[in-house]
Amino acid sequence: MDIWSTLSDTFLDWESMKAVLPEMLKVGLVNTLILAAASVVLGTLLGMIVAVLALSSKRWLRWPAKIYTDIFRGLPAILTILLIGQGLSPITRHWWGPNPYPLGILALSLIAAAYIGEIFRSGIQSVEKGQLEAARALGFSYTSGMRLVVIPQGVRRVLPALVNQFIALVKESSLVYFLGLLASQRELFRIGQDAAATNGNLSPLLLAGIFYLLITVPLTHLVNHFDKRLREGRPVESEDVELEELAHANR
């Protein structure tokens, strides 16, 4: 038995891939995108709140943010997901039944918010003090100055780190599988795993992996794009200015 045929039986069984493909697309991909997108939105909102609290001048606002960040960054994701997903389910099942998605999304978002909060905080803190001072000197309140001047600049600076966090969320969404999913709720990993168990080879999981990459690799390129733009400025715009300058000089 040569190595190549063993490996190809395990990973490249086209028949089992083909068999699972429709389900992978219609159920798995959709569910993974729902889980990831919902956690991205909720995690970003919560993260912004954590960041604003962490930057407060009042200690009783800063401390809860710090403790929150320490806890949710410090625990293994799987542990948080199980504690929240299973632990709160007796309470929440009155509202939406045993559906594990809301609590799964909540757990993923709470974890993400700890990281995203730190990302926003560092970005906002990197904005020069003079920016808020100038805004306040014009008559903006602290809140408006932060909202209109400081936070937009801070967020721009951390877009690459933020997108990296979104990539992590896409991958971590697979962990909700531990909460037990109905057939229609299975996401990419679970569908791959089930099919792999049925067929006795790992090809469906490899296919799931390919789907993950189809989501995450474009995001990685988005990171690089943001990163490049941050370092070099916006090429088109600066060109416009140069042209304008020339036009002015020739007047």
């Binding site: 306040r136 903006f140 309140s141 600049q153 721009r156």
Partner: peptide
């Protein structure tokens, strides 16, 4: 103080224009 600052203009050493 916010209302007061609307009546007083200030110019800084490092300009502090909003770069975005």
């Amino acid at each position: 103080a916010d209302v007061l600052r609307r009546r007083i203009g200030m110019v800084f050493q490092h300009f502090n224009l909003f770069p975005h």
